[in-house]
């Protein structure tokens, strides 16, 4: 099997790996870096459990191959433990009951995070659209949408 050297930035740190170029980013994260917060639900871009940020945008890591990573910035759920906006989202997810089995949760949080980075005051429809690619079988989405909404309000409201 052929291997390539690939350099990119992972959770704020430069990394260099030697992997087969068609290895999926999802597997690189889970196997090479042991970052298991990124999940696999379908492997074909439909479920969003594997969502990560690529240069700040939500993407499906099951559809990205190692060869496409050169020079990119990848952020996973583990990379945002100290991020204020992410912490707010996480707290609101818990307070609103947006987490049941939790398997969709990291991907869902990253989609929400990417949305809020782009637009701090999204409408409910914007929120629904931003997470339409994240399937959740447990919650029916209502409390997730509520949690994201709450995170927009408290961020933009200095009194909170």
């Amino acid at each position: 099997m052929k291997f390539s050297t690939i350099k990119f930035e992972l959770n704020g740190k430069p990394v260099e790996i030697e992997v087969p170029p068609a290895m999926r980013l999802l597997d690189i994260l889970r196997e090479t870096f042991k970052l298991t917060g990124t999940k696999e639900g379908c492997g074909i871009g439909e479920c969003g459990a594997c969502t990560v940020l690529l240069n700040g945008q939500a993407v499906a890591s099951c559809l990205l191959l190692a060869g496409q990573l050169e020079g990119t910035k990848i952020t996973t759920i583990e990379g945002l433990v100290h991020d204020e906006r992410m912490n707010l989202l996480q707290r609101n997810f818990l307070e609103c009951g947006a987490v049941q089995c939790g398997f969709c949760t990291p991907g869902m949080l990253l989609s929400a995070y990417a949305l809020l980075q782009k637009d701090a005051r999204p409408t409910t429809d914007d929120i629904k659209n931003a997470i339409a690619g994240n399937l959740c079988r447990c919650t029916g989405y209502k409390q997730i949408i509520q949690a994201i909404q709450k995170s927009t309000e408290s961020l933009s409201d200095p009194d909170q």
């Binding site: 871009g45 969003g48 993407v59 990205l64 989609s111 949305l115 994240n134």
Partner: peptide, 9 residues
């Protein structure tokens, strides 16, 4: 088209 994740790529 697709989802946000798909449209971003």
């Amino acid at each position: 088209i697709g989802s946000t994740q798909i449209r971003n790529r």
